[in-house]
């Protein structure tokens, strides 16, 4: 109920946003739990050392590889897919806000939201750019 002329639409927008965030986090948590269980079964005795930074291999850091590797049902790949879903959840919220403002014909805020969206995409796909 931010703005009276838009209150009806804003109320619906809030409800959908709330569900979007809830189901996004739940889906991410589900994937991380499934991946974790698979990891324990597949690597019961392996120990990793994190005291020096080596950086993750490409299959854990590039968006398209995370998506394709998850099909192999290896524990850590499923966890990483869950983490990607988690990072995508606030992004989905921004995409939805953009659509919502367009429906409300609120051009200024549709524009503002679009700028945020571009910044988020630059970040997620920065390794495909020169940065």
């Amino acid at each position: 109920m931010t703005d009276n002329p838009h209150s009806w639409n804003d109320g619906r927008m809030r409800e959908i946003m709330g569900s979007l965030l809830r189901y996004g986090v739940l889906l991410a948590a589900f994937l991380v739990i499934v991946g974790g269980v698979l990891f324990f079964i597949q690597h019961p005795h392996e120990f990793f050392d994190y005291s020096t930074f080596k950086g993750e291999p490409p299959r854990f850091r590039q968006v398209h590889l995370i998506l394709s590797e998850a099909m192999n049902f290896r524990g850590r790949d499923i966890i990483q897919l869950g983490l990607l879903v988690l990072i995508a959840t606030p992004v989905a919220r921004v995409i939805f806000a953009f659509i919502g403002f367009l429906i409300e014909k609120d051009r200024i805020y549709a524009g503002i939201t679009f700028v945020v969206l571009i910044i988020l995409f630059i970040s997620l796909f920065s390794n495909y750019l020169m940065f």
Partner: peptide, 14 residues
């Protein structure tokens, strides 16, 4: 997004 694509986010720690 930056950290993920630079390999800072580890599945087993996260």
């Amino acid at each position: 997004g930056i950290y993920l694509t630079r390999g800072y986010i580890d599945p087993v720690l996260s």
